[in-house]
Each structure stands twice: as C-alpha cells, then as structure tokens.
Design a protein around this nucleic acid. Structure first.
Lengths: 207, 207
DNA sequence: TGTACATCAGTGAACGCGCGTTCACTGATGTAC
DNA sequence: TGTACATCAGTGAACGCGCGTTCACTGATGTAC
C-alpha cells in the first residue's frame, strides 16, 4: 500500500493565514484576547468561524501566532541597527512602537490581561519580562561602568525604569492620543546622560 | 392610604456590601473585569449569584463601586500629606501603591482592559488619565519654573514620564515580584533633580 | 414587654445568549499519470 | 495536453457550556403599636 504525502497549503491558503493573523492582532489590540470572539474575527476576514479553524487548530494557536508576529516585526527593525548601543536600540524600540501603533497597543493590552496566571499568554509574558530585565540590566550596568550614564543611580533601577517608561507611555497614549511617545522617550534618555548640560560640570567618569 | 418608607439595609447588609466589593477588587485585579464571573465572586463570599444581585443591581455597578474604593483609599493616603510638593505626593502614590498591592494591580489591569472604547470603565479611565495629565503637567511646569527640577527637559514630557513610570513599574512587577518599585520611583525622581551630584556644578536656576 | 408584620437577606431553578469547537459535507485546486 | 482524483478551502448546522440576570419564594430581622 502506497500512502501519498500531504500537499501542504496552497498559496491562497498561506495568504489567508497571514490575513487572519493580521486581523486577529488588530482585534486583540483593541479588546484583548478573551473579549475577542472567533465569530467577530471570522466576519472581519470574510469567513465563517469554522473556516478560521481550518487554518488554525484553536483560538489559542492564533494567539501564539500573533505574539510571534510582533516579535518578528520588532527583531527585523532592530536588525537594521546591528551592534548599536543600548540608547539607540531603546529609541529604535520606541520608534518602531510608534510606527506600528497596532502591534504596540496589542502588547500592552495583552501583557496586562495575561497577568492572570491561568491566561494562555502568561508564560510568554513572564519569560518576555524576565529576558528583557536580564538584557536591560546587564546593558545598563555596562553603560554605567563605561561612564555612558549617570553613575549616581542604580543600574538595576535604571533598567526597570527604561522598560516601565516604554510600557507606561504606550498605555497612557491609548487614553491620550496627543501624547508624544517618542519625545518623552528621548527626554527620558537625556535624563540619564552622564554629563548633564550644567555649566562648570566636570566628567565624573574619571574618578 | 399611608405608605411606609423603606428601611434601608441592616448593619449586616452593609458589612456584606463592603465584603463583596473587597472580594471583587481582588478578583478583578487578578483576572480583569470581563474574565471574572459572578459565580466565582459569589462563591468567594459564600453566596449564590442571585444573592450578589440583592446587594448590587448588576456586575457593572460592582465595577463602579470597586473603582470608587480605590479612589477613596488613595485620597485618604494623600490627605495625610496635605499641601506637600509634587515629589512627596508622587512618592506617596508609589508608597501607597506598594502597600496596597491588590488595589494597584487592579488599576493597571483594568486600565489596560478598558482601552477598548466599549468597555464599561473606558470613560472612567479616559477621564482619570486626562485629569492626571492636567494636574501633573501644571505641577511639573511650576516646579520647573521654580528651579526644583532640571530646566533642560520639557515639563510636558516629564509629566508624561512621571505617570508612565508608575504604571509601567506596577505592570512589570506583576511578572517580576523581585522588582523594587519604591526604589525605582525614588531613582526616577533623583534623575529629575535640578542640581545633580556633579562636582563643580553651579545652580542653573539663577540664570 | 409582647407581638404583628413589613422589609431585608438570601436561595434555587430557570431564562436567553454568545462562546469555542465538532462534524459531515461541497466545491475548488493542484498534481500524477 | 487531458483527465482522474486526492487534498485543500470553506460552509452550515449543531454541540455543550458558562455567562449575567430574572423570578417566585423562604426565613431572619428590625420596628411600630
């Protein structure tokens, strides 16, 4: 008996997948994961709920796919400034966030929703924040050692602040669209300057 | 025909109300509003779902009550430092947040969930952020004018940052319980100092 | 001080509804010969 | 180049379930006389 191999999805099928993930990202960003229904999403892409599940095994799998989408998009943007220092990378994260407002809202809304331990994305965000804290702390420590940021503040606190500023501004912007996230982020990093624009200041890095 | 006036709730009933609101605050903080069910809440306080609705007209009314609870609690804490300057008040907000971890989580989780325009708490949070921005901006502008914060940063940006730092840190702490929110907030305010601890610096406020 | 009774506190069963998912099915699409 | 047919893309109806809320009801509690 000879068994035939699966053909895999057609080109049209793959396009549909992308279209569905993009629409899901928009809806999750608007209302969160739990409050977005398969019926609502299906209608958005012109399918029936059952049609969605032909492309994805479950609503959970869609969430996983959406989280991956954001990751890819951000990593692609960061790959354009290879080997840049942390300030530049942080500003690139902020710039990317401002440019992709949808994905940005998505991440803030989902991370807050996923603080519930039984939320399907809880493990993802716990790992995300753990990894971000680790990377940011060691980068900030290195910058502090090299005199690139003020030495009179704990690098651990500065790392927490750098992350909090991005999250907090993005949340705030959802209620105050006039808020200029990029400008505020730039101002934050200026606060960290090792040599503030104070007349008569000497370089503390040589101490 | 003489109609008798309503008696109002008994003492036991009022205690129940408070007990229910407290439990609702805990559950909303854990899982958000939409994902918390009346059945779950009823079980927590030893009632049936219908029993809850004897004390509150709807789930929505419970949410309103819970939001008011937080407001009262924070205002009571701030009333203990009357007329204090903005730094002290901000630190008091942070201290209060750290002490009432439940209420704090509640506010961050709900504000993210409520970014959806049709969420029952959307108007509340929109007004909350609008009012907070207004107060914080004018306070920051006054401090800048008086030389109490660095003059080389826009007061509007600093105000946005002050709010974002509190929100962002509280969100981050839900995934990293080791995070020291109070310390990070103190570090942030040190970054704003008008006269950084730099040898040889002169007071820029007299310029 | 005693008691009738209106109101309060709470129950248990049921309601209509929207949810994610299943299942058997139909037509479209690409491929092997 | 033509065609048989396996697989893909998608439908329509139905599923069991948990949701917020309703309703008629029972016992407890406080109050007016």
């Amino acid at each position: 008996v000879t068994t035939r191999a699966a053909r895999g999805p057609y080109r049209k099928g793959q396009e549909r997948r992308r279209e569905i993930v993009a629409a899901a990202a928009e809806l999750f960003a608007e209302s969160g994961y739990a409050s977005t229904s398969m019926r609502e999403l299906a209608q958005r892409v012109g399918l029936t709920p059952a049609g969605l599940l032909h492309h994805f095994a479950s609503k959970d799998e869609l969430l996983t796919e959406v989280l991956g989408l954001r990751q890819e998009s951000l990593e692609a943007a960061l790959a354009e400034v290879p080997g840049a220092d942390m300030r530049t990378r942080a500003r690139e994260v902020a710039r990317h966030g401002a440019e992709n407002a949808g994905l940005t809202s998505l991440f803030v809304v989902l991370s807050a929703e996923a603080t519930a331990p039984d939320h399907p994305a809880h493990a993802y965000f716990a790992e995300h924040y753990r990894g971000t804290a680790e990377v940011t702390q060691s980068a900030m420590a290195a910058m502090s050692r090299d005199g690139e940021v003020r030495a009179d503040a704990s690098p651990v606190d500065l790392a927490s602040l750098a992350v909090a500023v991005l999250d907090g501004l993005q949340l705030q912007q959802r209620y105050r669209p006039d808020l200029d996230v990029e400008s505020a982020v730039a101002t934050f990093w200026r606060l960290l300057d090792a040599s503030p624009a104070v007349p008569g200041a000497v370089d503390p890095g040589s101490a």
